[in-house]
Design a binder for these strands. Structure first.
Lengths: 109, 109
DNA sequence: TTAATAAATCGTAATATTGCAATATTATAT
DNA sequence: ATATAATATTGCAATATTACGATTTATTAA
């Protein structure tokens, strides 16, 4: 099918899955890392640095933007992208709670 | 294409993307959450609780196992799955470093 | 207005993912 | 050995993702 049955899961599970999925690609991780280092990023720089076509980079940026992880504003002829602090905080909270709920060291099987 | 150009990224970026991708599905999040609560889990229980077909659950379990997030041992006629502590620690470290490297509150654009 | 630059969108090909029925495998009990 | 139970695998259909060339849109400069 290729169609996730979202109606069988809670909105929290679906939301976390959506955020993780948006980050679950090496190009999008590389994009985010560049923003984390430089605070900001412009599509053209990424095209040069990542070695992917402009259309591909633009598509990855849209994907990150569509789930709210980044935001972009027009700066003259280019577009300035940066982290959306709200979503980033949500991400940290959700993933932190999820990963942090594992306590046992001894593997049971 | 549908084919990620992994050769353009570092092994760290590819590894993190692979781990995130394995978790980036609501069914797999639900499976992990159940393991986190009960410490262990058996395929049959998940089939009843999640409302997906047995073949589908088995496939999701295999995906989580293939990246090392969970491990399974045969327990009589069923299989006991639990968290793989090593991978979980790696996940916490990698994701923690990634998310934690964002410091600025003020959005720049 | 026109040209130049940057980014977004469209269209498309190749590949991956999701889900399930049917079947196969594995381990226990009789 | 056979039957039963639990899980894994296979094969397939529907849909999603990835990547990119070509084109369009939007903004600035001349």
């Amino acid at each position: 099918m290729g169609l996730t049955k979202t109606e069988m899961f809670t909105s929290e599970q679906n939301q976390l899955a959506q955020l993780l999925k948006a980050m679950a690609h090496p190009a999008r991780i590389a994009i985010l890392q560049r923003i984390l280092v430089f605070n900001t990023c412009i599509c053209g720089d990424l095209v040069e640095e990542l070695g992917l076509a402009q259309a591909t980079i633009s598509q990855h940026l849209r994907e990150l933007k569509s789930v709210g992880i980044i935001q972009g504003t027009i700066e003259g002829v280019s577009v300035c992208y940066c982290i959306n602090p709200e979503t980033w905080k949500l991400l940290e909270a959700q993933i932190g709670a999820f990963l942090g709920s594992y306590k046992l060291e001894a593997s049971c099987c």
